[in-house]
Amino acid sequence: MSETIMLLCAIAGTYLWRALGVAFSARIEPDGALFRWVSCVSYAMLAALISRMTVLPLGSLAETPMSFRLGAMAVAIAVFLLARRGMFSGVIAGVGTFIALVAFA
């Protein structure tokens, strides 16, 4: 029961942001300065989130050494760039490195 309430609250708590975004977007012109500012905020938030998930993760990932996470991320980006923006190669290399480090190091 309480699990269902928690879920419904989490759904509502996430939807709130989505709905606010749509409500505000009505006043934004796609070729205006406001649009570029909001885009900058989006990129900054996404980067902050990715960086936080890597450097200071929650839960089980936090038990792995930070060097593993940062090292694997560096491998992923290096392979991505070397493979001319090969998304698939980058992800496989990064996650593979991470799993290998956790399993054998």
């Binding site: 885009s39 900054a44 996404l46 902050a48 960086s51 980058g90």
Partner: peptide
């Protein structure tokens, strides 16, 4: 996080690159 990072590693637009770098640095 690994995939998300690569999703944005190819960004070329100057203000967006700056936003990504600043966000990644100050986020944690």
């Amino acid at each position: 996080p690994c995939y998300f990072a690569l999703l944005f590693a190819g960004t070329r637009v100057r203000p967006y690159v700056a936003a990504l770098l600043l966000g990644a640095f100050f986020g944690p």
